[in-house]
Design a protein around this nucleic acid. Structure first.
Length: 470
DNA sequence: ATGTAC
């Protein structure tokens, strides 16, 4: 599968034709502008085609404009599988189960924060543990950890880490049904237990941002966002627990794929029938990891609020919290009928046209790369009919971590941030070149494509003031 | 992404 085979189906819509020789069951669709086409990897096209061969796939194997090559499924990939004829695949969710984004809005405005951004960033850095292997401040018992897996963000709110209103503003209210801690391995529990309330590493971040532009005043007002207002954005996931759960089930599914005679063009696509015991077990463990991630972001929000209270005698309101690595049981209209499907979103964000948190379309949060803008959007009807209610998840990597380290320096990147008056704090200096804006696609272009496609609509643009890098 | 390896 190569570039020459892509067929233009519309502005920003490129089809990967259904190739019988490859046993594709549906065509692929990749959403790109001419600018983003330059970054498209051959491997990502192949992965879109590979996913199209999996049993029970509906309509299309999709890739968002921030697509890049991942483990089995592309990052930026969306695929829906029939609940009875289809499959579940850990590679379609990703290692960092429920990696996601949360936005809090403060009562402060840019000019109030500007003179104190250094001390605020330092205080946040000291309050929220970050980096590889970082541990949280909580000491959980086995039983409490099971509670986190079962109840998600509600577990934290019940213990005073936030308020009940927070839950209303989380995707799925911060808890996925069907979680079962007995389906989580002892090793995954051991890794997860000390880490609750920690940021992690890599592209995870905590940023102090300000609203740079409002595009949709009605939605922005409802979400509580005004120009120049200061926000805190968190990008984090399920830490070692989710990673271990993914590893455990991938290993199990390698053998199970053979048992169920599922032919795979790539071993990394290991999967099992959606109605099998193995699939039920994976879904229960994945939901537990998803709930851990929501609890993790909820607990970190508590420490953010604690810092705001101490430093500015104020607090912050939760705007929304989205998952962008998850499989969910959803009903969609497919070929005129309503159908239950497992939607795999791997580096893709839910963008429903309805949501009960504000009574309008669902808020969508898209983090940019370090030093660049982030966006608040909302979902659309068009997303419901063309992408199973999904949109992009971020800028999307273009340089590998290694390539970024080779071509960029800590000093150069930090100076670039300084020129934009952005303060940065990190324990891991190697993360600075790896997460530099130059290592990612231009976020404004990605947002432009999803907006022009109509699969989400921009509400506000946020620009960073202080960055904590994991 | 990740106690950066089966």
């Amino acid at each position: 599968m190569a570039f020459e085979e892509l067929v233009k189906r519309g502005e920003y819509v490129w089809e990967v034709p259904q190739d019988a020789a490859l046993r594709m069951r549906v065509p692929g669709r990749i959403f790109l502008s001419e600018v983003l086409m330059k970054y498209l990897e051959r491997g990502a096209i192949q992965q879109v085609a590979n996913v199209a061969t999996l049993p029970g796939i509906q309509k299309w194997s999709l890739a968002m404009p921030d697509v890049h090559t991942g483990y089995g499924f592309p990052i930026g990939g969306v695929a829906a599988f029939d609940v009875s004829e289809g499959i579940l695949s850990p590679g379609g969710v990703g290692f960092d189960i429920n990696c996601g984004t949360r936005l809090l809005v403060t009562t402060l405005f840019k000019e109030e924060i500007e003179p104190r951004i250094n001390e605020l960033t330092t205080a946040l850095f000291e309050a929220i543990p970050s980096g590889l292997g970082s541990k949280g401040q909580l000491r959980l018992s086995e039983k409490e950890l099971d509670g986190v897996f079962l109840d998600g963000a509600k577990w934290a709110v019940n213990r005073g880490y936030g308020n009940p209103a927070d839950l209303k503003h989380c995707e799925s209210n911060g808890c996925l049904d069907g979680a079962d801690p007995t389906k989580v391995s002892p090793l995954a529990k051991k890794r997860g237990k000390p880490q609750l309330g920690s940021l992690g590493s890599g592209n995870h971040f905590l940023e102090t941002q300000c609203v740079d532009r409002v595009f949709d005043k009605k939605a922005a007002d409802l979400f509580g966002l005004k120009e120049q207002q200061v926000c805190i954005m968190l990008h984090s996931g399920s830490r070692g627990a989710g990673h271990q759960i993914c590893t455990d089930y991938l290993k199990m599914f390698q053998a199970a794929s053979r048992k169920y005679s599922i032919e795979l063009p790539d071993k990394q696509l290991a999967c099992v029938p959606a109605d099998s015991q193995e699939a039920r077990d994976y879904f229960s463990a994945m939901a537990a990891a998803a709930n851990y991630a929501w609890t993790n972001r909820q607990v970190m929000s508590y420490w953010v609020r604690d810092v705001l209270e101490q430093q500015f005698n104020t607090t912050a309101t939760l705007v929304y919290d989205v998952a962008h690595n998850i499989a969910k049981l959803e009903k969609h209209t497919i070929d005129g009928g309503r159908k239950e499907v497992y939607v795999h979103r791997k580096g893709a964000t839910r963008a429903f046209d309805k949501d009960d948190s504000y009574g309008i379309e669902q808020p969508v949060l898209i983090p940019g790369s370090m030093g660049t803008a982030s966006y608040v959007l909302h979902g659309t009807k068009k997303a419901m009919s063309t992408t199973f209610g999904s949109t992009c998840h971020g800028a999307g990597r273009i340089l590998s971590r290694k390539a970024a380290r080779r071509s960029l320096t800590w000093r150069g990147v930090t100076e670039g941030l300084q020129r934009k008056h952005i303060v940065i704090k990190t324990d891991d200096l190697s993360s600075v070149p790896e997460e530099a804006p130059e290592a990612y696609k231009p976020i404004d272009e990605v947002i432009d494509v999803v907006s022009k496609l109509g699969i989400s609509e921009a509400v506000a643009r946020l620009t960073p003031m202080g960055v904590i890098k994991g």
